[in-house]
Design a protein around this nucleic acid. Sequence first.
RNA 1: GCGGACGUGGCGAAACCGGUAGACGCAGCAGACUUAAAAUCUGUUUUUCGUAAGAAAGUGCGGGUUCGAGUCCCGCCGUCCGCACCA
Length: 762
Amino acid sequence: MSGTDDRYNVKETESKWQSVWAERNCFHVQNDGQNPKFYVLEMFPYPSGRIHMGHVRNYALGDVLARYKRARGFDVLYPMGWDAFGLPAENAAIERGVHPAKWTYENIAAMRAQLKPMGLSYDWEREIATCDPDYYRHEQKMFLDFLKAGLAYRKESWVNWDPVENTVLANEQVIDGRGWRSGAPVERRLLSQWFLKITEFAEDLLNGLKTLERWPDRVRLMQENWIGRSEGLRLFFDLDGMTDSRIEVYTTRPDTLYGASFVAIAANHPLAIKLAETNPELASFIAECNRLGTSEAVLETAEKKGFATGLTALNPIVEGQKLPVYVANFVLMDYGTGAVFGCPAHDQRDLDFARKYGLSVTPVVAPPGVAASDVIIGDEAFTEPGVLINSGPFDGLSVADAKAQMIDIAEERGIGQRSVNYRLRDWGVSRQRYWGCSIPIIYCPDCGAVPVPETDLPVRLPEDVTFDKPGNPLARHPTWKHVSCPHCGKPAERETDTFDTFFESSWYFARYCSPKDQSQGIDPKAAARWLPVDQYIGGIEHAILHLLYARFFTRALKRCGYLDIDEPFTGLLTQGMVCHETYKSEDGHWLFPEEVEKTDGGRVIVSASGQPALVGRSEKMSKSKRNVVDPDAIIRTYGADTARLFMLSDSPPERDLEWTAAGIEGAFRFVNRLWRMVMFPAAPLAPKESVIPALSGEALALRRQIHKTIVAVSEDLERFHYNRAVARIRELANAVADLPPETEGAGWVLREGLETLVQLAG
RNA sequence: GCGGACGUGGCGAAACCGGUAGACGCAGCAGACUUAAAAUCUGUUUUUCGUAAGAAAGUGCGGGUUCGAGUCCCGCCGUCCGCACCA
């Protein structure tokens, strides 16, 4: 061995093969292939400007699967693109005066340049960017089709409004009742917004979860809870002395009707608003409720408060029972009917409320085996199932039976009906933003909301916009929004809101099937060939929003004739985060990993000053805590194979991965070791086409292990036990290295062993 | 509060159906090569006792089922995650 040749030259080798792959267009896949198909997809990135380790892990997982499936004879669709609309581009425009489009496309170029040396086997010919009019024009058409199909509508709704920024904020952008950037108290405002009717598919989305056998249970459960199906009764309460109005209540506990002690309605319930017209005190109570945000912190500390309206409701089941009617801050207008009856003995919230306002507490369910006279309600409501008491003819029934009978009776008497309720609400897609897809609607004073004619699509974003003032640049653009009505030709105005950016990510997987198709966006033949996605890989943080929206969108597109599938992703892998220790200097500043070093004594010091550094717990890599490692630097030093091997070696994919410098060194050593084994074999290799010699002893044992390893690694890969697959490959490498060179047949087995190793490792 | 996941050496982990606990790797220790270092190779490494052969204990804690439990059941403790005034 000479000093220069005994070490693997990462740069030369990797760039050589990468350019060979590029020249031969190795990973391009045609839509009309003859082999069985397999579609591998990673959640596409937002072009923030730099690749981070989370991306590297995500794409390493996908790439291994794509290569494995190709090796098993599948035509593999494995594309990459950019989720390119979004707020950071506008922030860059505000802060640095760069146009969002320029900023975004420059970031895409930078990230693509970082991705290429990773040697991922993408079909780059299918690359898309969602901010491209050739992408979003189809999305505008889809919206118009949804509108025709009754799946999109416009309505007034309460939103989080930031009075300083003049825009709607998402719930996630409201922190402790204040706007995350402006710090101004968020107001609740009634605004006209476009909605997609996701609730139409609530039942179907719920049932569909059962078919997603290759999804993590955790994600299915989260979606199930999010959809939040409940069964109960809608029931009318007449008001004493009023014939023109009554209150409709939704309850899942009709069995507790005999224990009712009040009725409460939401602050923005129509009846409350009507009463407030003549009652200034109530009006100010309602205003107070509306001022309260909907953030967790506010809700947790908010006291249960009610305002007695003076009205009396009549219990429709219990004759003669009269109940005071309150407007209460804990009743939500968006859920059920915006009105509840309170049964303090069996609902904690109702009990708190009843104690505060001195209302009666009558237990109507006894725990099994407890006599009616022994049931005492203190500070805790009894919410478990039991046997009915104090409920007239229903005494002695089980909770389940009483529910059923109560519902039957209400239906017979025509005062209520069985009802299924969902927590899921329709998806508000309007955003008062510039850098998004325009909602293709024109408002005419005479004709109302008129769809933009399909021949006028796409509605392009104007480029000459300013970001010097708060608010939506589209709304204040001098000419863009002024158009004539497509119906009557009179002066009209464009919708200046854009779509929520989850809109783009709800169908991009279908666009990859025919990324250049101009006429329809999704070519039915291509979609039939590739969809659904066989394996989707991404972070758990999208367990609900993106994955639920995409499942809904797929159903909506099916109804409008675009697609012929129900579920977009049959397999889902949610990968864990990439974590790293955190470091702080003694004066409390976060330090980058390269700013500290470990001493021989095992202490950690700040390299520049020699002062001790404080080591914090390992957390998800984030810029704010500076516990980040730049993938570029790693790939430059160790190469893509090393980075990817390390990503797969230690932790199972679903679990968090602790990034360590020692770990990457270990992976690098193995890559080098393999290279040496191939370049300088221990025994002369048998010629390629030679006949299998008769084997015995250690050579035979090794041959057995080689084939066992092939089987085991395949199984491990099928089950995403990538860390185990790596361990087995390393075991085989050890075994190959241990084979005595003088063994009979060594040359032959060695060749087979090495070929296998190279194939499996590749 | 509700729902869920997890808990195994100094560290990341493995153990598929209940059958040799700790594969594979990291770190450590000892050695070989070297003037030396790096790299590489060899050995060793759960803990306690023992010079050793060996013995005992051991998968968060306490019980149980079983010939046999990291794995199954019951009850705790801890960590993490999701949802949360949902009637």
